[in-house]
Amino acid sequence: MQPLRIALAQLAPRLGVLEDNLASHRQVIEAARKGGAGLLVFPELGLTGYQLQDLAAEVAMRADDPRLLGLAADAADMSVVVSFVEEAADHRLFISAALLEDGAVRFIHRKLFLPTYGLFDERRFFGPGDLLRAVDSRLGVRLGLAVCEDFWHLAVPETLALDGAQILINVSSSPGRDLAAIHEVGLGTAASWRTLMRTYAQLTTSFVVFCNRVGMDETISFWGGSEVISPSGEAVFTAPLFDEGLYFVDIELGDVRRERIGLPLLRDERPELHLRELRRILAERTEMAIDEASEAPAETEPS
């Protein structure tokens, strides 16, 4: 398989200033094209900034918004992942990541898990997505998109890999906190994320691409440290903490096949077992009898 050049746009969006962020996205798309990137990834809410609160509705765009389609037109022959506040036809707001390819919005992933604890208050302002699917891309492999907190739930990378994704892409606005000398990089958040991404890459034998923003919104600082992890769980590239920049990383997509042949974890996954036990657990939680359907063989399930 051909080598793929990935560009990570570790940007510092301006909070609530959509026009400025659109302009910086256009510039970065141009720079990534000149740099020969096949896949360009922007961070979570790169088009709007993170700590929006009641501004969320004011910067929301529909999936067919001409401004978004304009970016798609600029992206043209690259695969570009951008993130924004999406307003659905029924006016629900979502934190979305869109895959732009061939001048169109090819796919939208709506953030599934909205942290509403500690310093987070996302569920107050946004609705959670309901779909978790990998998507075919012009790169010749399926991609799995996820947004920040989605990766703090094991089922997300697992499901995406089972759905055929070979590159798992997480776009984040991860606030840096828990400063402590005991952590490898001096920042608890960064240490946790690094552990997660290496583990997911290894267990799903997929590439993991993590693009995290930098800069500050109000009191919180975002730590960057974007990464690309190989299917064997090793970092191919780690961007510096806190520095804004566009970083290029070359990967061999053939590494996925090599790893999966040598370490056939995905082949040996037991989704039917998982499904059966999940049904039982759910039934027990709700004190209901296990549904008849749970006994049906997995093969009869729609795929």
């Binding site: 400063l179 952590h183 001096g186």
Partner: peptide, 11 residues
Amino acid sequence: LAIDTDVARRV
């Protein structure tokens, strides 16, 4: 209570 002073300073 020991922190990475470089990171703290940067932030």
